[in-house]
Nucleic acid binder design. Sequence first.
DNA 1: AGCTTTGGCCAGTCCG
DNA 2: CGGACTGGCCAA
Length: 855
Amino acid sequence: MQREVLNAFVDGNQLVQLFRKEDGRVYALRKPAEYVSYLETKEVPVVLGRELRGSSYVTGMRAEGRWCRVNWLNDRARDAMGSHPESPVVKAGITVYEGDVDPVRRHFTENDTVIATPRRCYFDIETDSRVPFSEKEKMRVLSWAVVCHDTGRQWSGVLEEWSDASERALLEGMWAALDPFDQVVAWYGDGFDFPVIFARSAHHKLRTDARRWLYLDHLEAFKKFNMHSAESGEEKRSMRLEDIGQSITGRGKLQTPEWVKERFGDKSMGALSYELWEAGGEFRKLLVDYNVQDTTLLRDIEMETGYLELFKTVCEVCRLFPSTASLNPTHQMDGFMLRLGRQRGYRFPTKRFRENVVKFKGAFVMQPAVLDPVWRAKHNMEDGIARNVHVCDFSAMYPSIILTWNMSPDTKAFDGTVNGPIPTGMCRTPMTGVCFRTDVEGILPAALREMIRLRKFWNDKKASLPPGTSEWHDADRRSTAYKVVANSFYGVMGSPFSRYFDRYIAESVTQAGVWLLRRTMAEAEAKGFIGLYGDTDSAFIMRADRKDFAAFVEWCNTGLYPRLLKEQGCQGNEIKLAYEKEFDRIVFTSAKRYCGSYRHYKWSTTCTCDVKDKKGGVRPGALNVKTMTCRDCGKVHEVLPPVRSEPEIKGLEYKRGDVLRMAAELQAYTMDLLVGGLHIANDAAVPTTDLERYHAKLSRVRQRILQEPLSLDDVRLSKGLSKPLREYVAKPKQDGTPAAQPPHVTVAHILKSRGQDVREGTRIDFFIQDGSTSPQQVLPAEDFKGECDRYHLWESLVYPATQRLLEAAFPGHDWAGWAKVRPPKVRKSAKVSTEQTSLFDVARARHKDPHAEAK
DNA sequence: AGCTTTGGCCAGTCCG
DNA sequence: CGGACTGGCCAA
């Protein structure tokens, strides 16, 4: 039986592997750490071979197929021999392969050890809130909590007295509590908890070897796997545990109780940690409760999302340990490919630093045709709301392109021209002209095929199991894991930081996609349909009936693509188009930004059977011949029932976490009126073209913004720092003085000066005090006292998002008239105060409102 | 220190 | 008011 390894790391010149004995105890197995690189034997002159063999840097050499496997004394020797200009290997101009692979990866590339399922616990600490993270070495730990994933059992500890001895005992208790576990999961753990406990344990010179555990930052894992499932911008506004907990589980952190506020003021529990500890008694007990509740929340989030289980499965597939680093797609691809390469006698180049990397061309994105008034007139569209729009898309487009053209570093043969005959034994990528051999399967396609095979295996397995059982969930996760990894391969190949980087192959992938999508749109138009929009792998088509469109998709798969691909020399065809859905109504404001309501999705709908009888039957006009089963009521319909579903929203402000909440809300309400939907009203909103409905809402919201009391939630903007604060350089203006920084950076500096922890990735909450000056006057959200620049709020932060939507949907109407509310400056030197909003101003604004009379 | 890609929109700053 | 530029976030 294969042993399951819990963890592994390099200790000096040894590779340490951890296993669990049958009695549950963990033991270590040590062996020499191997620093290996490969040379291609035929490239190595006899003299050089002899020199290497005799070198004190080389501890062993052996042949592996056509490769020469060289064992180096240590990583310094390996690096020097691979890259130093005086190295005999470099001087001989020989390529070194896999010369950066660390001993852990090397071991698991060459051995069959299985990655164990770690015993997982959730973890959180409370620390002295008066000390900033930058001084973590001096940051005393006040309490800790550990929660077992499997059982939910909790452990905690709290500092007894303010002394080093007491903290030492606290930390020893903490490590002891972690002892039964292999994986420690903490929210923002890499950014806070882990560095703090390491720093404090080092401070106290504790004996515990922290390398025994796998550390996973729950926040990072959540972000990675939640990226594609976040519905609204609300979920992206903040990555604080409090907010994620609320949106995922409906429960948040422990709120500050009134009796605590009475004594310490209205602060969050986290900000009061020291005061609570210091006060002792009930206060100190509350601190521990808070600590434990946070930790339990992590477990609840995982129970709801299953992201950590999925990640564990991805790690098993790629033979990685489930710690934060393994979230990186480059590591995942390494884990899978190095092993496959070795099995197939292929070695990959050494990863190396590249500068001045030339970018490659990406996907085709069409400007939505409906935005062009001439186009609308030509197709008799009264407004910008497109009806009955059919969408087809390519299934797993980039992996299927790599398979079809056999794209791989080992099959790439010839950078030819686009025209002229294709070399025999090859296929050619249209638009780039890059050719690939067709006589042998490339290693990249082989990897993808393997993953597709395993995905199918687990899908079939899933189908054979009773739904909802743990075996069923396991099979489901394995299938998803293979999909996740397969989809990331293209990106890793396009990354100059990976050993698989190949600009020409990456560009051939994207350009083959461009070519396929363009050909598909052209053929759709040739069939008499109308191409509306397309992005990367999808085509939005109008003026087709369902039956005809389904037939078109079928024809593409059975007729068009096989012919086109054969013309390119491809031996197989993995390209598949699918009829995904039909929009009942859809409105585009620009490329990548639209909202629409479904008519059907993959031929199934959620129908309103309950109201069908009252209203007297289904909506007429459905042309499909398929039958479908309603997901709600289980009835079989022969025609499409009326649809009741949430609208699909892409790219619009509603989906963004950095816009004003009121902007998202006004836009959401407007979208409901435009295409129908579920997310404002509890019941389905009925689409309308009655402009008064829109005017009424605009009027109400504008009134509120200009005149009514505003809360911080109404005015708060939030943007993340994408790099460390010091890297935002203010370039000098023409007069030599530095230019203003972006608003959130300006506020970040203020917060930092107040002693707050401001780092890369920190979200900065702020509001705009005065937007009429340049640069604007901005303040931290915590400074908000009820007033801000209300004109700016409406003119720049709330209305434009909805204005664009309305102008797109009803282009013939004047929507700009609603935009301006700020009264013109009387004098050049007129001072803008924060109390600008007066009834007089609003009256002026209304006077300018072309629709005010209609009210 | 280590890093999945390109295409696209929009707010904001500066300057002519 | 426009264009060039930076920065953030989203679609695929």
